[in-house]
């Protein structure tokens, strides 16, 4: 039998603390890009009971995603937004999930993330990461922006850290392991980095 909303909430409140859970329940987080970073971040946040998630990606699930992204083989070909929303609802059906199946650009990034207290940059390309971080810092300084850079390869997972760059800008990763240097993305190391980004989200929410 599926636990009720109240039972689910009480179980989270018992672990996180009632005050913290209230804050998590009231928070809205936008996840920009639903690949190795974004799909893992979303699952962490849904499990923690973050009340509203805005999921944004233009892409479809591909067989080459399955080694690190939180999709299933029977979801290949589906829009990532739909597939991830489905998976999140199987974990926690009691949060609000909003999806936008669109490519994020300088032109639409502010509008797509306007309701979010915290914006998670979870793209693959360096140019896209820079575009979103610059756009939020320049034009929406009231929002937090969390970003990740440098997580490819088999190097030590302990090299991945989260740094405060400025008041509302945090950066996770090792800053150097570039997928374009011919090193692949490995599920465990990407998940470590996604875990860093998701954990910073939770810290920010409970300390608000």
């Amino acid at each position: 039998m599926i636990p009720s909303k109240q039972e689910f909430y009480d179980a989270l409140a018992a672990r996180h603390g009632a005050d913290n859970q209230k804050k998590l329940d009231g928070a809205t987080v936008a996840i920009c890009g639903l690949g190795g970073l974004g799909s893992n971040i979303a699952i962490c946040l849904a499990r923690a009971g973050v009340g509203r998630l805005i999921l944004i990606d233009f892409d479809q699930v591909d067989v080459t995603n399955l080694h690190r992204q939180q999709y299933k083989i029977n979801q290949v070909g589906m829009n990532k937004t739909d597939a991830l929303a489905e998976n999140l609802r199987e974990i926690n059906p009691y949060i609000l999930i909003e999806t936008h199946q669109v490519m994020i650009t300088e032109g639409n990034a502010l509008e797509l993330t306007k309701d979010a207290d915290i914006v998670c940059e979870a793209f693959d390309k360096a140019e896209s990461k820079a575009m979103l971080v610059n756009t939020i810092l320049e034009k929406a300084p009231d929002r937090y922006i969390l970003s990740s850079s440098g997580m490819a390869g088999f190097s030590d997972a302990n090299l991945i850290t989260t740094k405060r760059i400025s008041e509302k800008f945090y950066l996770s990763g090792d800053s150097v392991s570039d997928v374009n240097d011919g090193i692949g993305l490995i599920s465990s190391r990407v998940m470590v980095c996604a875990g860093h980004e998701a954990h910073k989200v939770l810290q920010i929410i409970i300390s608000s």
């Binding site: 979870a122 693959d124 140019e127 990461k129 990740s148 850079s149 440098g150 997928v179």
Partner: peptide, 10 residues
């Protein structure tokens, strides 16, 4: 001055 230089992967 803090220059955050992004690399690919995610």
């Amino acid at each position: 001055v803090e220059v955050v230089s992004f690399v690919g992967g995610g």
